[in-house]
Amino acid sequence: MIIVKTSEEIELMRESALIVSRTLGMLAKEVKPGVTTLQLDKLAEDYIRSQGAIPGFLGLYDFPNTLCMSPNDQVVHGFPTSEPLVEGDIISIDCGALKNGFYGDHAYTFAVGEIAPETEKLLQVTKESLYVGIREFKKGNRVGDVGYAIQKYCEDHGYGVVRELVGHGLGSKMHEDPEMPNYGKRGRGKKFIEGMVVAIEPMINMGTQRIKQHRDGWTITTLDNKPSAHFEHDVALINGKPELLSTFAYIYDALGIESNEEEEFRQKQFVL
């Protein structure tokens, strides 16, 4: 069952989402060769708690850390480790925060130093597909419309779209209805309802769509060990249109990147 949020609840969710956005922005300056993902995890936990929030992933389903850290061929759900990042790596950082009874859940795949051109293209296309999907999250559409748009965009570029892992509804629980696959058929699935909030998160592989789960019960890697990218936004349906609750603006500010990619999805002016 889809749980519709009031306008007041959506604003509380925006606050939680922006805590995650600021956390990722803070981490953007720290993602570099030589740093360990455990160090990044500690920075994130301290920052989230300083904002009066609780790390959303820590202890959720018994996950032991604040961040899911998934480098290179890891798709999602990787554990932070003491192994340092190296030049040419990519790293998906997935972060959650709980405040005022509502979750934020947001992810970005960072380049570590200079990366290969083909890997840079994977990141670019995956992030573009996120907005292609968000554009379909509107009045009159269904879950399959978002999934179809993401799938077609990525497969047209020759990439594999992960089937076993999906986006989801978001609210007082980290995972609510509906599931939001990154594949599908137009006009299929649950119909979008005014006031619903979802996390849309393409997980796209350079090679095969197939994945494998490791014995730790969490870590997911590509079957062919080629790189995977992951980007995620929290989005509310307001006045029949998608409204971003999260933002990559803090990341871009930290990295000196100029972008207007989010403008069409903001009904309110966003200020850093």
Score class of each variant (00 low, 15 high):
Gly184His: 07
Pro181Ser: 08
Arg215Thr: 11
Ile193Gly: 01
His175Thr: 11
Asn205Thr: 12
Ile200Glu: 01
Arg188Gly: 05
Arg210Ile: 02
Gly171His: 07
Arg215Glu: 14
Pro202Tyr: 05
Arg215Val: 14
Pro202Ser: 08
Met180Ile: 15
Ile193Val: 15
Lys212Glu: 14
Lys190Gly: 06
Leu170Gln: 02
Gln213Met: 12
Ile200Thr: 10
Lys191Ile: 13
Met174Gln: 07
Arg210Leu: 10
Pro181Glu: 07
Thr208Asn: 10
Lys191Val: 14
Lys190Arg: 13
Phe192Ala: 01
Lys185Val: 13
Tyr183Phe: 15
Glu179Cys: 03
Lys190Asn: 06
Gly169Trp: 03
Lys185Trp: 13
Met180Asp: 03
Gly187Ala: 12
Arg188Glu: 15
Val198Phe: 04
Gly187Asn: 07
Glu179Ile: 09
His175Tyr: 14
Thr208Pro: 11
Glu176Met: 14
His214Cys: 03
Glu201Ile: 08
Ile200Ser: 01
Gly169Ile: 07
Met180Cys: 07
Ile193Asp: 00
Gly189Tyr: 04
Gln209Phe: 09
Gln213Asp: 00
Gln209Cys: 05
Gly195Phe: 02
Ala199Cys: 14
Ile193Lys: 10
Ser172Asp: 14
Gly207Asn: 08
Arg215Asp: 13
Gly207Cys: 05
Arg215Met: 10
His168Glu: 03
Met196His: 00
Gln213Val: 13
Thr208Ala: 09
Gly195Cys: 03
Val197Phe: 08
His168Arg: 12
Gly171Gln: 06
Glu179His: 05
Ile211Ala: 05
Gly195Lys: 03
Met180Phe: 02
Pro181Val: 15
Asn205Ala: 09
Lys212Gln: 13
Val198Trp: 02
Met206Arg: 11
Gln213Gly: 05
Asp177Asn: 10
Glu179Gly: 12
Arg215Ile: 12
